[in-house]
Design a protein around this nucleic acid. Structure first.
Length: 328
DNA sequence: GTCCTGAAGG
DNA sequence: CCTTCAGGAC
């Protein structure tokens, strides 16, 4: 079915030249040219930024993580020579820690530079279809389609695709790429999705592609979201304090592999200290802290000062905050 | 279907 | 306060 559509696409190529031209003119004026990772075409800079930007918003990456990370690990080589714990500490609070572990693993596999083809990039840990194409487009200026969620939304609306397959969206995005300026084309589409072709109430009156957008009369029809189901959970952590230092252990949770956290305990009401909320994916957590005396296994001692640079999640960071507040 | 978080919204 | 949103790899 899709093969047939793609065949038709090849037999009767659409004329995109005007749309491509208007898109680049808009980008010239309205694009986010000052984003730090766009000021460089160094493949390492592009790579680090794309991994950080996976599932994470531009402002946090730009202000709290990207510059600090490059300061600490200025090159792929430097990153490859670092300890995983250092890399996780630089990632602390950003979430999706497998990104940091995979980034480090890829640096060890390619300490000099990254490969220059989609196929080779896709073999590396943590690099999927989006990131491979982003590197090829933004670092190497290759003529490849790049489809992140912003561009996906633009493509679905522009071509009026209702619930298309991933392949269909990729094929349309790929066919639309400007052969002369693939990098600028993809960055422009990304900014258009982020600034104009918004999920709700898109600003079609400002859009350079509105003149030939097939979906502009009902833009939200093509990008409906499904509603989510949540699950509530309670977690219990122990606070073992000696000489102003608090005991941490290596996390047994897969998602926090390699990171430190408070030890789990059985709740005893008389030892209750504090509680706070946290959430991830579909889970809504109520986290409760209890005083405890002994901790099994390998223990790492941290005071409130030292914890700032430790490989811990936001959940653990919140626990230290709740603890300090309860002790005042 | 799993992995994370802070900002924005009601 | 609680809920929703934004953002790709495996």
């Amino acid at each position: 079915m899709y093969a047939l559509e793609e065949k038709n696409l090849l037999l009767e190529p659409r004329q995109f030249e005007t749309a491509q031209k208007k898109l680049l003119e808009w980008y010239e004026v309205c694009g986010r040219h000052e984003l730090p990772w766009r000021l460089s075409e160094d493949v390492y800079h592009v790579y680090v930024s794309e991994i950080m930007l996976q599932q994470t918003q531009v402002n946090r990456v730009m202000q709290e993580y990207y510059p600090q990370f490059l300061e600490k690990f200025p090159t792929l080589k430097a990153l490859s020579e670092a300890d995983e714990a250092e890399v996780l500490a630089a990632w602390s609070g950003l979430g999706y820690y497998s990104r940091a572990r995979n980034l480090h693993a890829t640096a060890k596999l390619c300490p000099q530079t990254l490969p220059q083809t989609l196929d080779e990039l896709l073999k590396l840990p943590g690099i999927g279809p989006y990131t491979a194409s982003a590197i090829c487009s933004f670092a190497y200026n290759q003529q490849v389609g790049v489809v992140d969620t912003n561009i996906e939304r633009v493509i679905k609306r522009f071509f009026a695709l209702s619930q298309p397959s991933v392949n269909k969206v990729n094929a349309e995005a790929g066919g639309f790429v400007n052969a002369e300026q693939p990098r600028a084309h993809n960055l422009a589409l990304m900014d258009l999705g982020s600034l104009v072709c918004l999920p709700n109430n898109p600003k079609c009156e400002e859009c350079p592609l509105a003149f030939s957008c097939d979906g502009k009369n009902e833009p939200e029809f093509y990008t409906k979201k499904e509603k989510k189901v949540y699950e509530n959970l309670e977690l219990f952590y122990g606070v073992c304090e000696k000489n102003e230092k608090i005991a941490l252990v290596k996390s047994s949770a897969r998602m926090y592999k390699g990171m430190l956290e408070l030890p789990n305990v059985e709740p005893l009401e008389e030892d209750f200290i504090a509680a706070f909320k946290h959430s991830y994916t579909k889970y809504r957590l109520t986290v409760k802290l209890y005083k405890t005396d002994d901790v099994e296994g390998e223990v790492f001692w941290y005071n409130h000062e030292e914890i700032q640079n430790a490989p811990i999640s936001s959940l653990t960071r919140k626990a230290f905050g709740a603890l300090q507040k309860a002790q005042r």
